[in-house]
Amino acid sequence: MKPWIKKTLFTAFGATLVLGGLSACGSRDHHGRGWSDERVTEMRGKAIERISGKLDLNTAQQQKLAVLADELIAQRQAWRGQGADPRTQFKGLIAQDKFDRAGAQALLDQKAQLVQGAGPKVIAALADFYDSLNPEQQKQVREKLDKRHGWGRG
């Protein structure tokens, strides 16, 4: 792996770890509901419907989008399923008068290994979905990303 890619990945995961720890207290979405497996499945369906409608996806494209969603959910479950819940993990890092740097590094290493293990499947699913889009649909995706809005806004 190229050094700049490795640094970027570790920086991103480090930031994710810190933000995840800080936001662990906010384990509910803005409607006050927790993110149970049922809620994730519900949101998966809504996201696929919304993206399918905005991009006017055909059946084959919808299937590729569903595979991508399933890979992302599997990675999320693997991420969350490792050890204790994020709040407990973060509380362990700040339980003493000094931040547990070694514990944080070990946690980061564990999460990085998880992402590196599942990452190729996520990348393959994303590539399969994106490559199945026609040029106009790809343009819509790029424009949506340029506007920095999620699929539910704007």
Rank of each mutant, 00 (worst) to 15 (best):
G103T: 09
L17W: 04
I73V: 15
Q82V: 13
A124L: 08
E42A: 15
A12E: 10
R101F: 11
T8I: 00
E42K: 13
F13L: 15
M43I: 13
L57F: 03
V40H: 02
T16N: 02
L72Y: 05
D131L: 12
R87G: 15
R80K: 05
Q75T: 14
V67Q: 11
K98I: 14
D85P: 00
R148M: 08
Q116R: 04
L107A: 07
K54R: 10
H30D: 01
S52Q: 13
W79T: 15
R87D: 12
L22G: 15
K98F: 12
V18I: 12
K54D: 07
I5P: 11
R142Y: 12
I51A: 13
Q96E: 08
A104H: 11
R33H: 14
L72P: 00
F13Q: 14
F13C: 09
P120M: 04
D128V: 14
G150R: 06
D97I: 15
M1G: 15
V67W: 01
Q105H: 08
D100L: 08
G150M: 10
R28Y: 05
E71C: 13
A95T: 12
G34E: 05
T59M: 03
A124K: 09
Q62A: 12
H30E: 00
K111G: 02
G34N: 03
K64C: 13
V67H: 00
D70H: 00
G53Y: 04
